[in-house]
Each structure stands twice: as structure tokens, then as C-alpha cells.
Design a protein around this nucleic acid. Structure first.
Lengths: 149, 149
DNA sequence: GCTTATAGTAAGAAAGACTTAATATGTCCG
DNA sequence: CGGACATATTAAGTCTTTCTTACTATAAGC
């Protein structure tokens, strides 16, 4: 009986953590999914970006982001305005009504995180994050560089 | 600009890693998804379990597993036989034709893993795995213990 | 024997993510 | 300046994973 490949463990933990987060969001009555929350977080971190630029920051296809933004816009949480320097483009920002929700999202997510990370030291958490970020950098690099070298 | 919540980083890394794995599987012409590969790995690790027991090992609902097994059975990679001790149940095993595919899955997954983990020491990888397993244990515990305490 | 629980099958829905295609706009080069 | 190529967004569609609800046959417990 061999060890479960690391990738499958990672996928499983991500799935379980996500389910935990969704439950927390639902119980708190936030009215959004973790995917939508993630979009809000990124718009907040990078206000006024074009949709395509934001999608690149988030490592998803623009279409994927747009669907998420559509739902958030419908909830008056983000607004999309024409880019004055390029009539093809739109700039994405949070609306004022997003601020209180962001605070709640942060608090609820912190709850789920605390439960998930229970028993780990701050150093262990920091190392874990650093590793994740390292993996992400590797994965982003290989996703953007076709293997024709 | 605040730090991206750990959960979102984790979800993103899992997604990117999964996409990387799917690409590798497709390029190798394996004909199965990473989800199906995961099921094969678990059947291999736990031969002859009932579907419900296997689903529990995998932390998914039985229905989810059954859908996966349906596809794998259609490809003659697993077989389900009635449990002689309980006529409601079925026992799941790999078929002989799964063995060569398992070897290929393992090799291809190792490729994706090597690329993803590039730059990390063996100790770092081991610590990462240990942390993932710790998180999984926490998440499994809270998923199975309702918060009415 | 009746009630409750369990295992598996069937049907349906949601979320997230991607691909293809079309249109309007922008850039570059001859 | 015009044509070829590239880009941003919208529209439509597909796939995978995962879950929930419901039903039937079987098993367990009292």
C-alpha cells in the first residue's frame, strides 16, 4: 500500500477546506460563494484593473472572471466602468456597499481558517504559505511557458 | 493591500496543480481525469472495500464515488462484485487491465509533481505533506462533528 | 414482526473552469 | 492610409466535480 500522491492530498485538503468555508459563509448568511469572495478580495487588492488584467492576477481565464463579476455586479458589490483610454476595456472596482460585506467575509473566513489550522504554530503556517506561494510561482511559470523548449 | 487569505492561495494552487496534472494526463493519452485517477489510487490502496467505506476513506459522498466508479468500470479498470456477507453491498477492486495504466498514471503524475515542486528540498516537501495531512485531519474532524457542542 | 438504519441506484442541480466564436476597437507595418 | 493582426468583452456551450433528494432492497435491533 503506497503513499497517496501529494497532488491528491492537496486536492483533497483544498476541497475539504473549501467546503468548510462554504458552510461558514452560508451559516453567516453572506449570500456569496467562496469563489465570489475570492474575486472580491482580488478586486479590493487591485482596484481599477481591466478584467483581463485582473483575470491574469487571479490565474483564471477572463471568461471565468466575467461570470463571477456578473454575479457580483448583480449584487451591487462591484462596478465596471469603461476605460477612458481604450474603448474595448472596462475597469473593475468595488462598490461602497461591498465594504461591510468584505469585513464580514474576512471575519467568517478567519473562523474557518482558525479551525483548519488548529494545532499549527505561526512558523508552520508561515512555512506552509511560503511553500504554497512557491508552488504557485512554479505552476504559473509552466502554464505560461509552453513545453516546446 | 492586504495579504491574500491562505485559503484562497491553497485553492488556487490546487486548481493550477490540477490543471497541470490534467494536461499531463491528456498529453500522455491516459484517457482518464485526475479525479478518476484518484479513485484508482484509492481502490488500489484499499482493495475489496464496499463503496461506502471507500467513499469515507476518500472524504467524498458515496454518490460522488459511484459516478467515478461507473466511468472506471465502463473502461474495465475496476469491477464491482456483490458482497457475500451483505446483499446490499458491493466490493470494489481493480481489474487486471488497470495495472499497466496505474504504472503510467504514476509516472505521468510524478512528472507534473517534479515540475511543481522544483526548487524545494526533500525536507520542505515532507513538511508540506505533513502540514497538509494535519489540515486534512482537522477538516475531517470538523466535517464529521457538527458544531452543536 | 415492525421500526429504523444502511447500501446502492436514479435524477437533478450548482459551482467553477475552460473553449469557441463574434464584434468592436486598437496597433503595426507596408 | 488601409489591411492584417491583436485585443477586450460578450455570448453560447461543455465538462468535471460534487452534492442533495428520493427510492428500493436489504439488514439490524427490539
Amino acid at each position: 500500500m503506497s503513499e497517496t500522491p501529494l497532488g491528491f492530498v492537496l486536492f483533497e485538503v483544498a476541497r475539504l477546506y473549501r467546503a468548510r468555508t462554504e458552510r461558514a459563509f452560508e451559516q453567516a448568511g453572506l449570500g456569496i460563494t467562496s469563489g465570489e469572495a475570492r474575486t472580491l478580495v482580488y478586486v479590493n487588492q487591485h482596484p481599477g484593473l481591466r478584467q483581463t488584467a485582473l483575470a491574469e492576477k487571479m490565474n483564471v481565464e477572463p471568461m471565468t472572471l466575467v461570470a463571477s463579476l456578473d454575479r457580483l455586479e448583480a449584487h451591487d458589490l462591484v462596478r465596471r466602468e469603461p476605460d477612458p483610454s481604450d474603448r474595448r476595456a472596462k475597469l473593475v472596482n468595488l462598490t461602497p456597499s461591498a465594504a461591510p460585506l468584505m469585513a464580514r467575509i474576512t471575519a467568517v473566513a478567519a473562523e474557518a481558517r482558525a479551525e483548519t489550522l488548529q494545532g499549527l504554530s505561526d512558523d508552520q503556517v508561515a512555512a506552509f504559505r511560503a511553500t504554497l506561494e512557491h508552488l504557485r510561482a512554479n505552476l504559473v511559470r509552466c502554464a505560461r511557458a509552453p513545453e516546446d523548449a
